[in-house]
Simulated scan of single mutants.
Amino acid sequence: MTRFELAIPGDVRFGGGRLSEVPDALAGWGARRVLLVTGRSPDRAAALVEGLQTRGLVVTRYAVSGEPSIQVVRDGVAAAAGCDAVVGFGGGSAIDVAKAVAVLAVRGADPLEHLEVIGAGRPITAAGLPCVAIPTTAGTGSEVTRNSVLSGDGVKASLRSPLMLPRLAVVDPDLLLGVPVATIAASGMDALAQLIEPFLSRKANPVTDALARDGIVRSARSLRRARRDGMVDPSVREDLAIASLFGGLCLANAGLGAVHGFAAALGARLGAPHGAVCAAVLAPAIKVNLRAARRVRDRSAVTWFADLAVLLTGNPTARPEAAAGWLTELTTALQIPGLRTYGLTDADTAEVVAAAQRASSMKGNPIELTDDEVAEILARAT
């Protein structure tokens, strides 16, 4: 008998222009002072700030310039003093910091109290400040997930709890206008990975399967166009925004796999953007996973790869191998750099393989990979 659970925010709003609804939502909750967490370009939030202030809300701003870290969250908790709501506006880093600050600021807790792997890992039991998540890149899907990924001690680990789901997620495709093409490429590949890995996951369920199928098709038909032409076409913006949203819902409810196992192992080590690591690893991971499925004679898994190939290529007779081939061609078309660009060397292989194998994301990988197979993925991604 099929059994599954779904964890999603209580209010998800999608559509062009829906950013304008945020001030009224916050005011309706009784918020008076808001911590606004942005990325490295806080000016992009000018219209939101104006709307909040017009509604009578006091705005405290906190900019996150890079990947989220334990110290960045500590500083954010300090900045939230006196605030009664938190808004994350930006890419996955800004939103992850906003979610972490919202849940920790209520009692001034330190991230290490609850952080997995490198912290005490204590369960989060108290609701945080109301949190609004507003993505401005089509990548992480963090606006609908229940964790926040932070770096520390050379690794990445998560704060994780259903209490970290934002109270409101607003996905406005118009916010993708003006996003740099390199960001479009890396974020788009990250979103695609977050659709493909849950689709292939051992923890997939009928809901995530349906969302992943739709999202993969949308990403496949629009990501190259976005890299070539930018986000000028509204249909492209909508496709990639939906793909990212669906990817977040899928990963939150069906898990991930080897691609994100490497992201956990390499993100803090290399200082590389999360999306860039996922983009470099995706095609090699699919290629090696298919061969591993055949090694263990898992016919069901091989069928999933065949389904993936059909979704990506649009060819109803596509062979399973076509998925990795199509993704390799996409990686080239999007000008995704290899991991050596970020300083990875052959001397790092043993430590990276061990770290990737320990990553929680590996639990959802369709096949249990050997160390040699994991090392091959890494070599192909350099």
Rank of each mutant, 00 (worst) to 15 (best):
L339V: 14
A7T: 13
I216M: 02
L48Y: 01
V34K: 02
D239H: 05
T54S: 14
D371N: 05
A94Q: 08
G108V: 00
A381T: 04
E116V: 06
D172T: 05
V179M: 15
P173G: 01
N253H: 05
R297V: 03
A133C: 07
A272N: 09
T303Q: 14
L115P: 03
V64A: 02
A322W: 03
G90I: 03
A25P: 05
P198T: 12
R74L: 06
A354T: 01
T60N: 11
A306V: 03
S161L: 10
K203P: 04
V179P: 08
A301S: 13
R202M: 11
P173C: 03
L311Y: 07
E368T: 15
Y342R: 09
L344V: 08
M362Q: 10
A279L: 06
R291I: 04
E5S: 15
T60V: 12
G119F: 03
G188R: 08
S20V: 15
L327K: 01
M189R: 04
A157G: 02
V58I: 11
P273F: 11
F4C: 11
S161Q: 01
A375P: 00
I8G: 04
P42Y: 11
L36G: 04
A333E: 13
T38S: 07
V86M: 02
R44E: 10
S41K: 15
G128E: 01
V103W: 05
L312W: 08
G119T: 05
R18E: 15
A354F: 00
E321A: 09
V310C: 06
R202F: 05
F89W: 14
G10N: 15
T136C: 08
A254K: 12
A356P: 05
G230L: 04
V179Q: 07
A309V: 11
Q53K: 10
H260C: 11
S148K: 07
A354H: 03
V353L: 08
D239F: 00
G248N: 11
P130R: 09
A324I: 06
D372S: 04
G56L: 05
A81W: 12
V353N: 00
G16T: 15
R340W: 10
A204E: 05
T140S: 13
A127G: 02
R3K: 15
G17V: 14
R202D: 07
R122F: 01
R32H: 11
A350Y: 08
G271V: 10
I184N: 03
V302Y: 02
L339A: 14
V217Y: 00
I70R: 11
G271Q: 12
L223S: 08
V72R: 06
R32S: 13
P284S: 13
R295L: 08
A182K: 14
I242P: 03
I367V: 11
G325A: 14
R294D: 07
A25Y: 14
T136G: 00
L19N: 14
D298H: 01
D348F: 03
P42V: 08
R225L: 12
I196D: 04
E329W: 14
E373G: 07
V149Y: 02
E116A: 12
T145G: 00
G28I: 10
G82K: 09
A292G: 08
R295K: 14
G257H: 13
A318L: 02
G90D: 08
R160S: 09
A375G: 02
A280Y: 02
A375K: 01
S300G: 15
G30N: 07
M1C: 05
